[in-house]
Amino acid sequence: MERIPILRMGHFLLVTIQIDLYDRLATNLEADLVQMVNRTGARGVLIDISALNIVDSFMGRILGNIGSMSKIMDAETVVVGMQPAVAITLIELGLELKGVHTALNVEKGMELLKQKIGPAEASDEDDDEDGTE
């Protein structure tokens, strides 16, 4: 079964969505991410949607769900790289991405996540940098 890869980088999980998700793929990603947050104790989730041409209410709900679930697991979610046309459409559609932070690009998203989890934890990131299983 097709899956969206989730990369671990220090305290953060990185996901790049490069194809239009169909429903099953999107709900799998939701489940995989939450399990991964649980297993790795990740403090932040960064989702890059720069390759997505469309975010409809289904996709918006998936992003919102990931944000809420991660929050309960004590991790912050930031969505980066939204295309301008997608942003315009989302607002007209009436969809606010509640529960997720947004940033312009991956770099700014990482900065935001580091701010959110606080400097103390961000600095001991080196401890388990190669701690993937």
Partner: peptide, 15 residues
């Protein structure tokens, strides 16, 4: 922009 609006609307209706 209009393309994105149209396709998003189409996606909502088809779902």
């Amino acid at each position: 922009v209009n393309q994105t609006k149209l396709i998003t609307a189409a996606s909502e209706l088809v779902r």
